[in-house]
Design a protein around this nucleic acid. Sequence first.
DNA 1: CAACGTCTATCTATCACTTGATAGGCAGCT
DNA 2: AGCTGCCTATCAAGTGATAGATAGACGTTG
Lengths: 171, 171
Amino acid sequence: MQAHGYSGLNFRELASEVGIKGASIHYHFRTKADLGAAVARRYWESSDATLGALWDRYADPKEWLLHYPETFRQSLENDNRMCLASFMSAEHDDLPESVRIEVQAFAEINVKWLTRAVSAATGATPEESERRARSIFAAVSGAQLMARSRADIGVFDALMDGYRHFGLIPT
Amino acid sequence: MQAHGYSGLNFRELASEVGIKGASIHYHFRTKADLGAAVARRYWESSDATLGALWDRYADPKEWLLHYPETFRQSLENDNRMCLASFMSAEHDDLPESVRIEVQAFAEINVKWLTRAVSAATGATPEESERRARSIFAAVSGAQLMARSRADIGVFDALMDGYRHFGLIPT
DNA sequence: CAACGTCTATCTATCACTTGATAGGCAGCT
DNA sequence: AGCTGCCTATCAAGTGATAGATAGACGTTG
């Protein structure tokens, strides 16, 4: 799904990757919307766990923000894929409600995590921290977008350097 | 196309909007790739003109950067659409080569324009100006992404305020 | 233990529908 | 006549979804 989005996801192709037939998927997921929602849910739950691990790995709050972009970088490393949040926007209007909910959850957990990290790293007020958290999340998403469109992960790294250089991401 | 992307674009629906039949489009564009490339091309040419007009409208370089986000905002105003650059990334891997080229042209003209504007507004070196130009372009694209996913243009405006507040967009 | 029923997970076959594309015709204008 | 622009009809491929059959695991019961 991170490769072709929701509309690009089809039962037969997915099934063959798993080693079964397309019709068999309907046994586990009644509709495509159910399937999509399940995939999206598993995705943000996994991200949630990754962020939790990152939080535990470092004691210095600044380290959290410095390493945050890595969670997005991994998608690009893995076959030039993109995070669901990005597909979410592109396909937003065509997404079944159940899928949209799960996909938005991804953005929420990211902003929540970032807000806490920014707060701890800079001592800013909760409002200011959330404001910066949203800015960082949007900016990093945009960077992932650019990098994918050039199929060049170096673009992503350069943009992260830029964000730090211009002070968007506290160092 | 700004509503459903390239894969979501289909001959019959587009035709009915223009008041003709789907098959008739093949008279003007032999293949879907030709059609997509033409649409993408017209899009970045239009953006190019808009940026040129913005450049001429103000004498103070700082005004250029302050008003730049408006060119992206208009897409959202117009039916929660998104700029092609964003779809580009999402569908990048599935895009015909001819379409990809035109879509990337959009990013290029934006970065070029921004580089000149940043240079004029801040007096930074060419390298530094381009670096910031890329950062701004990616960040604004990401903001448009977020706003669309929430179907809320207020999200876009808030993010622009944030970018200026945190110094990414010079004021 | 063996026979039976049941549940699980998959299969094959098929349907209705959409999509890009082609072939060929027709009206209007120059 | 010939060109232009559009039409109808149709095709082949792919889509999500459903119906019904099948094979294996498992427990229950005679």
